[in-house]
Every structure is written in C-alpha cells, then in structure tokens.
Amino acid sequence: MWSYFANPGRFDGLARTLIPWTAGLTVVLFAVGIPWALVVSPPDYQQGETIRIMHVHVPAAWLSMAAYAGLGASSFVYFVWRHNLADLAARSLAPIGAVFAALCLLTGSLWGRPMWGAWWVWDARLTSMLVLFLLFCGYIALRVAIEDERLAARSGAVLAMAGLINLPIIKFSVDWWNTLHQPASVIRFDGPTIHASQLWPLLVMTLAFTVFMVTLVLSLMRSMILETRAIALGRAIERRAEAEARR
C-alpha cells in the first residue's frame, strides 16, 4: 500500500480529496473545543482561570514531539528507500513542529508568570522543549543552507535521525539536571490528577490541533509536489532551447 501511494501523482490526488475533509473537521473541532476549553469548563481550584492556557500548551507540546517523531521516521524512510515523498513529509513537518514548539514555549511562559511569578523558569519540561525547538531550528537552517536539493534532503535526513536517537537522552539528562540541582516545582502542568471536566475539552483540543497539523502537512506536501513539477517543466523547456541552439 505504501509503495502505491509513494507515487507523487497518486499522492497528490489523494491529498486533494483529503484536504477539504480534514480542513472541515479542524473547523468543527475548534468550534466545539475552543468555547468548551475557554468558557464552559470550570476554573481550577488552585490555578484559577490560568488553567485554560493548558488547552493550547499541552496539545502544542504533544504535537511538536509527534512532529519530530514523524520527521525522524520519514527521514529514515527517505534515507533507506529514497522515496521523495518521505522527504517532502520531513520538509513539511519541520517548520510546523518548530511553530508548535514555539507556541508551547510561549504559552508556558505566559502560564509561568502568574504561577511561578516569572516569565521563564528552568523547569525540566520547558527546558526539554527549548532543546527540541533548537533541534528543529538546526534542521531547518541546514536545509536552507544547502542549495542542492538532493544533498539537502540527505543531510537533513541524517541530522533528523541523529536528533531522534538523541531526544530521549536529552530528555533524561535534562530531568537529571533539574531534579538533582533544583527543588521540584510546586505546581506542575499536567500532573497525574487531571479532573474530567478539564480532560474532555483537552482531548477535543488535542484532536483539533492534530487534524489541523495533518491538514497543514498535506497542503504543504501538495504545494511542494506542484513546485517540483513546475521546476521540471522549466528544465525541459530549457533543455529543448539548448538542443535547438546546438542544431
């Protein structure tokens, strides 16, 4: 089945049919999730209204991690089988993952101000997210710096795989650093006890962000396929002109 859709033309057709559906679902889920999370759900007994930031912060954190996992997985597929589609997936996932990581950091900072009394605290989770954000930035910077498309794809794949292998080690080391040298934070974000009245809107929001991300990835991949086609067309025209000139 994978090799069937590995054909860019076929994938383009599939994406074209899927995108309206996922886009529609995104709108519906946000239409339900945003009012539920921001208005209907009760404020937290300890954190008050600021708990609502969690409904953006937590999905953003999960999705940026999912995006890096997807980046690493599609990089692996590209590196081993050289499916161009896998590279397109990697190329689209990187900026989206970076934006979600940035969103997570920003909301974390906003939440930290009333909770910790500071815009930034070197909490283990936030610090790991910051490192993840740097990993995305390094990947994007490397791809931008290499002009040759194929080399950029290959180098990017190698870096993303290295990052994926390192991610658990980084997470572990940051936890180690944090717990051994700083007192644990009094209030944590998603502790094990999360009330059902908060859990349901959180799940809806997470689902909404997920479908949103799928829509973005599919559209980005489609636009890249069209771009590649346009470039190939331009090359063919150029070649024909060259052949004419030689004649």
């Binding site: 993840l132 870096l159 980084i170 080391s173």
Partner: peptide
C-alpha cells in the same frame, strides 16, 4: 550552522560533565 546543529546534541554531555564538578 555547526554551533546551531551541535548545541542541542551536546546538551547531555555538558550536563553530566559540569554536574560532576558541581556535585
């Protein structure tokens, strides 16, 4: 580019090595 790429990957080693001195 090297600094940007290497920095996140060097995090664990930096933490453990300086941690030894601090501990």
């Amino acid at each position: 580019l090297i600094a940007l790429i290497a920095a996140p990957l060097q995090v664990p080693i930096l933490i453990f090595a300086s941690g030894a001195g601090r501990a």
